[in-house]
Design a protein around this nucleic acid. Sequence first.
DNA 1: GTTCTTCTTCTTGTATACAAGAAGTTTGAC
DNA 2: GTCAAACTTCTTGTATACAAGAAGAAGAAC
Lengths: 222, 222
Amino acid sequence: MGTRIADSVRERIEQMIVTGEFADGERLDEVKLAEQFGVSRTPLREAFQALAASGLLTLEARRGAFIRHPGFVELVEMFEVMAEIEAMCGFRAARHITSQQIADINLTIEACERAIQQGDSDEYYRENEKFHHLIYEASSNRFLAREAARLHKRLKPYRRMQLRVTGRMPQSMKEHRAIFAALQRSDSKATATALRLHVAIQGEKFNDLMANFQQLAAVRTG
Amino acid sequence: MGTRIADSVRERIEQMIVTGEFADGERLDEVKLAEQFGVSRTPLREAFQALAASGLLTLEARRGAFIRHPGFVELVEMFEVMAEIEAMCGFRAARHITSQQIADINLTIEACERAIQQGDSDEYYRENEKFHHLIYEASSNRFLAREAARLHKRLKPYRRMQLRVTGRMPQSMKEHRAIFAALQRSDSKATATALRLHVAIQGEKFNDLMANFQQLAAVRTG
DNA sequence: GTTCTTCTTCTTGTATACAAGAAGTTTGAC
DNA sequence: GTCAAACTTCTTGTATACAAGAAGAAGAAC
C-alpha cells in the first residue's frame, strides 16, 4: 500500500463513519469533503466506491453517497452469520490446527488475561482480535479465512459496543478458554458450538445490545 | 442504475474475465481497454475498483490491475464455504418459509424439469438460480441472503463448468426435489444437509471438476 | 562480458475542466 | 391561492491534462 491519497482518504472516512460522525441516511458531499481533506474529487470518489463495496455507504446513481448504518435487525442478522462462519472456522480448525498455532492462540489468551488485570481494554481488543484471526487461519481454508476477517472487521464497532457491558470481558475470557480447550483436544463439534455461542447474540447479550443501540439512536436523533 | 458508463464497462470486463478472455496474472492495460471501449480512463478505473472489490482482479499500487483466477484449491475452498452458507440458508428457511415461497420454489423445480426435457440448458441454469435465490430469501435473514447471492454470483462460471458433466443435470434435479421435500416438512436439519450435499464438491464431483479445471488450464497455457 | 547507474519512456495517480442530469425555485396560468 | 411548467442552480459523471513513480534501455565502469 503505497502512499495513495485515495486509500488514506478511505481510511479517514471509514473512521468517521465507524465512530458515528454521520447520521443514518446522511448524504456525503463530495466537494465539501474534498476541500476539507485538501484533495480533489477523484481520490474521494475512489474512496466512496471502496466504502460502498464494503457496505458502509450506498451510492445512488446521480444522487450521491449516503450513509447506511445497519439497523438493529440487520446487526443481529450480521452477528448471526458471523457466529456461523466462526463456527465453521472452528470446526475445520480443530481438525487442521498445528501445535505451533495452538501455542500462538494460547499466547493471545494469556495476553488477554493480563490486559484484563491491568484494565487495558485497548490491549484486550487487540489480543481478542488476534485470537479470532488465528482461528480463521487455522481453518486452513484461505478463502474462508478472508471472508471471516472481512465480516469481523465490518462488525468491529458493534462488537466493541457490546463488550462495554459490565462483566462481559471476564465472561468472554472464559469462553475463549473453552474454545481453546476444545481446539486442543481436536473436538470439532465442541469448538464449533463454543465459538457459535461466543459470537451469537442471544439471551442477555440481546438485551444489552438493544439497550446500547437505542442509546446510540437517541444520541443521533437528539 | 442509470446509464453509467462505469457500470456497463464493469459488466463487459466482468463478462470477459468470466468467459476466460484473460490469462491468470495478466495485466489489464487501462489506456488500451479505454480506447477499445471508446471511453476515458475514469469510468474504466471505477470498473477496476469494483471488480477488485468482488475479487475478480487485484490492484497493485502503481503497478496496475492484474487478473486473479482462482486456482483449483481456492475453487474447492469457495465451494466448501458456499455449501455451508447454503446449508445455513436452508436451515433457517425450513423454519421461516411461507406457503407462497414454497409454491414459488415448486414452480422453479417444474420449470427445471421442463428445461431438461427440452434440452434447454440456458433455461435450466436460470431456473436453477431462481431456486437457490428463493431459498436465500426464505432464510428471512436479509444480510445472509445478500452474502449468499454474492458468493453464488462469483461461483457462477465454475458451477456451469461443473454442470456440463454428463448426467449431472438429472442428478441435480433429484437433489432439488429432496431439498424441496425437506423444506416442505419444515425439517431444518434435513434441508441443511441436503443443500450442503447439493453444493459441496466431493466424491465424483471432485474428480469431474479437477478434470475440467486441468482442461481449462491446458487451453490457457497452450 | 557483466553489472551498476542513469536516463528515458511508460503507466498509474491526482487535479481540473466540461457535460449532463436532478432538484429546487420562480413565474405564469387557471 | 394552487398547481404546473420552465428555468436556474447545483451535483454527479466523464474527459482530459498534469505529476510522480516504476520499469526498461542505454551507457559507463570494472
